[in-house]
Nucleic acid binder design. Structure first.
Lengths: 214, 214
DNA sequence: TTGCTATATTGAACATGTTCACTTATTGAA
DNA sequence: TTCAATAAGTGAACATGTTCAATATAGCAA
């Protein structure tokens, strides 16, 4: 029934197949990005994506196991890009608190530009099977490592007590980040500034502790 | 096409309609509980539920706006029950840390008995529209209030410094609770004990703070 | 060139959540 | 009692994510 490859092409040298597959995958991804951005996740059907990419429906699901994976694929590149930029542009001499907020700010700005898709990403990202779910989780784990590293650096500056468990602290802070993000996305309007302020308060409290001074 | 009410019944006194509706809703809810518990959320179709309840497909969706709401309805009663029991059975003289863990333990035990449904609940509970989503969120907010109240009590016992912001602290702790829950449900086996231990460590760190002593 | 195998592609078929026009029962008024 | 209005109930129709057997191509060996 199918007509095989879309564009047979004249050349038959080795590597052709892999290149074709990569190109098709890219075509699908571009179409998905465009349509998700334009119409949102739920209003975009896989058939829409296939049509826009000039490809059969089955081909889309051959490259990405399900629609949620397609969303992750569409946004993950942006997210890792933001992460890299932000870490590369980390100013010197910032306190731990400000370092954390410096990382978070561009992410919140990104979410603010596409609250609908961000909502869906946050929701769909939970318990996703397959390689794309794993990639997203890997990204989160890398995030954790980064924050844990910042904690260690802050220790050496005397900003954080030496006996504090860095990874545990990073986990708690990441939990707060996600909770604040969830709260922000649950509001009708996503307001990054107030969310950053909220996260800042949490950071302060976490640094100071709430137990009796001693 | 439809045959109207399932059991017309002889009596026609007022209030009949409301009672019938409540009964039908209950029938549907029981069927949903049973099937969700037996086959899990995704393997249970709305048609299954309708058949088990002896009711048409449309009737199910007339009582609950969508499948996710049906899951919330099926579990929410249990959750509020656990909450009430746990609060009523709170031992006297417990430290704040132990009070928190005392509340969390029965919930984790509940999730451990149905990890699949708990996963789905956690995922589907994000951004659910309609009355059932609101009910679940209300439940979470009540939880927050309870923890904030415990913080205030701990203040008066001198266990928590007076200037600590109670609601902010409760929010951070709830965030950690959710993150630990998510982590546990992401593992192949949900092990309450180790999760409780993890949450305990977070509580300790949160009470002590990680900033320099002074 | 000629076959053979593995792989990419395809759309029809399927499963299932959801919508909706229609039927029937309840209720209160005439 | 009769009847009009309202509400509850119903399943066919629909929309869409996903599966899969069929098909065509690429890569490669003889």
């Amino acid at each position: 029934m199918g007509s095989g490859k879309r564009a047979p092409g004249p050349s038959s040298r080795p590597g052709r197949r892999a290149r074709q597959k990569a190109e098709t995958g890219q075509l699908i991804l571009e179409a998905a990005k465009e349509l998700f951005a334009e119409k949102g996740f739920e209003k975009t059907t896989i058939r829409d994506i296939a049509r826009q990419a000039g490809v059969g429906v089955g081909t889309v699901l051959n490259h990405y196991p399900d629609k949620a994976s397609l969303l992750i694929a569409a946004l993950l590149g942006d997210l890792t890009g933001i992460q890299e930029e932000t870490l590369a542009a980390m100013p010197q001499g910032l306190a731990f608190r400000e370092q954390c907020l410096h990382i978070v700010r561009p992410f919140f700005a990104y979410y603010a530009r596409r609250p609908g898709l961000s909502r869906t990403l946050l929701k769909e990202s939970l318990f996703i099977p397959g390689p794309w779910g794993a990639k997203l989780q890997q990204e989160a784990l890398f995030f954790l490592e980064v924050v844990a590293g910042l904690v260690e650096q802050a220790k050496s500056r005397g900003e954080i007590r030496p006996e504090a468990k860095a990874y545990l602290a990073a986990s708690s802070l990441f939990a707060c980040y996600l909770a604040v993000l969830n709260h922000g996305l649950s509001q009708p309007a996503f307001v990054p500034e107030s969310l950053i302020a909220l996260l800042g308060s949490m950071l302060d409290q976490f640094l100071a502790g709430i137990g009796p001074r001693g």
